[in-house]
Structure formats: structure tokens, C-alpha cells
Design a protein around this nucleic acid. Structure first.
Lengths: 185, 185
DNA sequence: GAAGGTTCTTGATTTGAATCAAGTGACTGC
DNA sequence: GCAGTCACTTGATTCAAATCAAGAACCTTC
């Protein structure tokens, strides 16, 4: 196995990368299948080799709220559930046929036991600055859209606008208007 | 030194508690003084023995946005800055004369080296479920107020309503109206 | 105790996004 | 080809909270 993992999420030597990759489990996930369901406890980090995932919550019988969107070459997990080892409230569902590389919590502990260097992976357990910016600050719909345009443009390629709208916590109508305004600005 | 720390944030034996307390630095902070300023990197966790703190961001020259409120018997830090060791964007400022017990990052590492049990403290580095609920879900002003009424009532004792309003990301007028409605419901 | 400053409340108005509604274009499958 | 569905757009209306404005209650402090 070689180079399934990108740089950028840690400072690892070649041998450390090899070690890391050796404990990963490669899995194929077909479109629509779930890696995590409400009630389950998130036990793994997943690195997406290819494909895309939607993490969402059932608001009511009809509607679902998109919590996060994940595209290839990104790590993915339910942070809350993983860190506190508590039942998830969200689904993590493949939006397309996908391949993931799974790092179980046991494997993570083993890595850290072997070398404290792997401590760095713990950073994956915290919300990214990008997510914090998007939802902690209170941005206007236009600002939210511009933010992902700038910081997560891949999402716009990977998902339909109604999914993006739900992720950004606005209606599809509002997103449509924001885009229209921006396109002629 | 005895019993400055409460239970509830970890599962420690008496001797572990003693060890933990032995590495804490007790500090007095006078009203208005800052434990952390924008540009600085958050290097410590603070346990508030007595007093209260406001964590806020300068929105513009005039206004400031309250990010978090901290009262006694709680741990406090700038999670983003601490975890990523990046410059803070917030102030952590004493709202009243206070006493804190400081756990530096170096002391934390030393504790974990001595016993992996202290790993549990890492949970302090993640946003609490309470905070996530308050700002990730999109609650109405009334729901936000009811949430802190139920989950963080001490805040209402410790801070004026205009500070609470800023924390809850609503105007003081809206908070006032929410309270009025609730009081006669 | 008067003057000034806060905090909080109350009322009137504005505003921005949600909702409601309808329509277009693209694709899907019979 | 045509009905049906789905994604997206566009327009009209509604609604909730922000803003603007003013006043009441409670402080300081000189």
C-alpha cells in the first residue's frame, strides 16, 4: 500500500506513515450505506480515499439537517460521539460509492503507545477552524456561501445545492438568491 | 492544599487528585485583568476557584461579542488556541476578582507521562455538548434562554442580562421580551 | 440630593430570511 | 414520446428579530 494518505494533517516520517497505513482498514461503501447510525458509538476515524459522505440528523419524520459534508482526501468522524464515546445522533452516509480507510480507536491507541508522535492525530478530534468560523460567528447567508466558495469549493462540485443549503442552515431559495446576487456582483 | 477540585470531570483516585493538585498554580486575578489576549497562545487550562470570567472577541471598535462565560468550579480555556497552539482571537477577562488554579500545558504533559489516567483531562479540550447544542442546532431566542435556564442557571446570577444576550447572540431587547413572555407562561 | 450613567423594559418600525406558490428545465422510465 | 420526478429559480407574502427610540428604575459620585 502506498500514499493513500496526504500530508497536511501531521508531521510524520516515512516509516511513521508506513506504520499508520499498515493499521488502516480499507473498506468499500456503496452509495446510500451508512458508516454510523444514531444510537451507535463512533469507534473509528475514516479517511476518504474516494467518494463523498453526508453527515446528517433527522429533524423530524420528514426533514433532515445536514451537519457536515465530507469529500475525498478528508478525515471524517462524529467528533462528539467518538470523543465522549456516547451514542451518535447523526448518520454518516455515503452519498456516492466510496472507499474509506478506517482507523479504529483501538488502532489509534496502539499507534500512540508505539510512538507519542501519533498524538498529533488527536487534532482530528476537534472541530476545524473552518467549521467554527462557519457556525460560531454569525455570518449572513451571503457570507456563509462566500466562505465555502473560498474554503471548501470541492463541496459545491460534490453535492447539489439543496444539500449545501441545508449544511449552511438556509433554505434552497435563499441560497439561490445569494448565488444570483453574487454572480452579477 | 485540599479539595479545590470537584469531581465530575474525571475518574481519579485520591492520590491522583493529590498529584494533580500539586502541579496546579494558584493565581489571584483582579477584576478587569486578562488571562489571555488576542495574539497570545493559550498555554494553560484554568480551574476557577472563585469569581467569574468573560471570554469575548472584539467585533469592531465599539462592539464585542461574548464567546463564553465562566463561573466558579468550572474549567476554562480557549480551546482553539490551546489545541492548535495558534494565536487567540479572544480575551479571557476577569469579570470579578477571582482565583484560578492553572494547569500549564507542560504540567499536563508531565501528568500524562506519569500516568495515562490523566488523559481524561483531554476531554476538557473539546466543546461541551451544552455548547454544541446551544450554537450548532439552531434554537430560537426563547429556546436558547430556556436552555441556559435549565443547564447553566449560574450564569444568570453571575452576569447582567446584556452580557447574557451577547453570549446567546441576540439583542438585549429580544432577551427582555423572551423573559417577559416566559414569566407569564 | 441633583446630575449622570447603567441596565432593563416597552413600543414602533424596518429588514432579511422563511414560507408559500408557481414555473422551468433536465433526467428517468414506461 | 410523454408522464413523472427532481433540482433549481423567481416572485409574493409573512414573520421574527433587529433596529430605532424613549422612558423607568437603579446605581453612582460629587
Amino acid at each position: 500500500m502506498s500514499a493513500i494518505l496526504p500530508g497536511g494533517f501531521g508531521n510524520f516520517s516515512h516509516s511513521e506513515m508506513d506504520l499508520l497505513q499498515s493499521v488502516l482498514l480499507s473498506k468499500e461503501i456503496t452509495k446510500g450505506a451508512s458508516l454510523l447510525k444514531p444510537g451507535q458509538i463512533c469507534q473509528s476515524l475514516y479517511f476518504i480515499g474516494s467518494g463523498s459522505f453526508i453527515q446528517f440528523k433527522e429533524k423530524d419524520e420528514i426533514d433532515q439537517q445536514v451537519i457536515d459534508l465530507h469529500v475525498e482526501q478528508e478525515w471524517m468522524l462524529n467528533q462528539q460521539s467518538f470523543v465522549r464515546q456516547q451514542p451518535s445522533e447523526t448518520f454518516i452516509q455515503a452519498y456516492t460509492d466510496s472507499r474509506v480507510h478506517e482507523l479504529t480507536i483501538a488502532a489509534l491507541h496502539e499507534l500512540i503507545r508505539l510512538s507519542p508522535v501519533f498524538f498529533q492525530l488527536a487534532r482530528l478530534l476537534d472541530p476545524t477552524p473552518s467549521r467554527i468560523k462557519l457556525f460560531d460567528d454569525q455570518l449572513s447567508p451571503a457570507e456563509k456561501y462566500q466562505f465555502i466558495l473560498e474554503h471548501r469549493p470541492a463541496l459545491l462540485q460534490a453535492f447539489p445545492l439543496k444539500v449545501i443549503a441545508s449544511y449552511l442552515k438556509m433554505t434552497p431559495e435563499t441560497l439561490s438568491r445569494v448565488r444570483e446576487k453574487l454572480s452579477k456582483a
